[in-house]
Each structure stands twice: as C-alpha cells, then as structure tokens.
Amino acid sequence: MTCPAQIVVPKPLLAEILQHLPDADAAHLSWLTCDFDLHPHRDHYGYVDDIGATEQALWIVWTDETDEADEADEAEGTEDTPSSPPRVSVERICPSKSPSSEDACWLPLRHGTPHSWTRYE
C-alpha cells in the first residue's frame, strides 16, 4: 500500500522547478503524493522528473506536520515542533532490478521502503 501523504506544491517552489525543467507540466506538478509505500518516517518524496541520463531524479521532499509523538504532545498541551518547508532535492535513483529484470526501482537510492517494482510483480 502506498503512502497517502499529499502536498500542494507552493508556487515559489513550483517556479524554481520550472526554471530547471521549462518543458514540465506545471498543472501536473502543483499537487503531488508521496511515492513511497507506507513508511514510519515523516519525510515524504514526490517524484518530479528524471534528470537526463544521469541516473538521478528531481524530487520534492516534505515533512509531515504531525506524527504520533506530535499528537501526544498536543494532547498534553506541549509545544509542537514546526516541520521543515518543502524543498527540491536531486537524488540518485535506486539501481535495484526486479527478479525477472523486467522492472526497475525508480525510488531514491536510500528509500528504506520496498522497491517500487514490488508493486508490479
């Protein structure tokens, strides 16, 4: 099951992406979902585009504003730690191939969740 986290990409960040990828579809990039399977960490990665033939991709990375610890803090009335703003990140693509070699993982190298090809095999 994939992670349900979503983000509306802030306009300044979208403008930054479009400077690097002038042919990108702004409407497609204005709203992203996390491309990982369900995961315990708060960082989420939304795929933007490959960077040429470099085995790298451009991602938007964001952090959940709340998690179970934050919800417990809120219940106790303690201060909440602010999340970091979304950012653009260049990440190497995971080189893992499926057992049949028909599919490859397209997640960031250190994704820490099942490889993307496990969804299709």
Rank of each mutant, 00 (worst) to 15 (best):
V90T: 04
W62Q: 02
I93V: 15
D49Y: 08
R92S: 09
L18Y: 10
A15Q: 12
P82K: 01
E16H: 11
E71N: 11
S98T: 10
T63H: 11
D25E: 08
E91C: 06
A24S: 15
P86N: 04
S116T: 06
H44Q: 10
P82I: 09
I17Y: 00
E65F: 10
M1L: 06
A53I: 14
D80W: 07
L32V: 11
D37S: 11
R110C: 02
T63N: 06
T54K: 08
D37T: 13
L38Q: 05
V8N: 12
P114M: 05
E79R: 13
M1R: 09
C105P: 08
A53P: 12
I51M: 07
F36D: 06
P22E: 01
E102I: 11
W117Q: 00
G46L: 06
W31P: 00
H44K: 14
E74L: 14
I93Y: 00
D50A: 15
W59K: 03
G46R: 12
E55P: 03
G52Q: 10
R42N: 13
H41S: 03
V61L: 01
K97H: 12
C94D: 00
Q19R: 15
H111I: 11
E91L: 13
E55N: 15
P95G: 02
T54Q: 05
L109T: 02
E79H: 03
A69L: 08
V88W: 00
S89M: 10
R110Y: 05
D35K: 14
T54P: 04
A27L: 05
D80Y: 01
E102N: 13
R87Q: 12
D35E: 14
Y47H: 15
E74Q: 10
T63W: 05
W31Q: 13
E55Y: 10
P95H: 07
H20A: 13
P40A: 08
D37A: 14
R42Y: 01
R42L: 12
V61D: 00
E74R: 15
E16P: 04
Y120M: 07
T63L: 03
E55I: 05
P12L: 13
D80E: 00
A24F: 12
E76G: 04
Y45R: 08
D73E: 06
E76H: 13
E76D: 15
V8F: 06
E79V: 15
D37C: 07
S100T: 14
E102T: 07
D67R: 05
R119P: 00
S101M: 09
L109S: 03
V8R: 13
Y45V: 07
Q6L: 09
T78A: 05
S100F: 03
D70S: 13
V8W: 02
Y120E: 06
F36S: 06
R87Y: 01
D37V: 09
P4T: 14
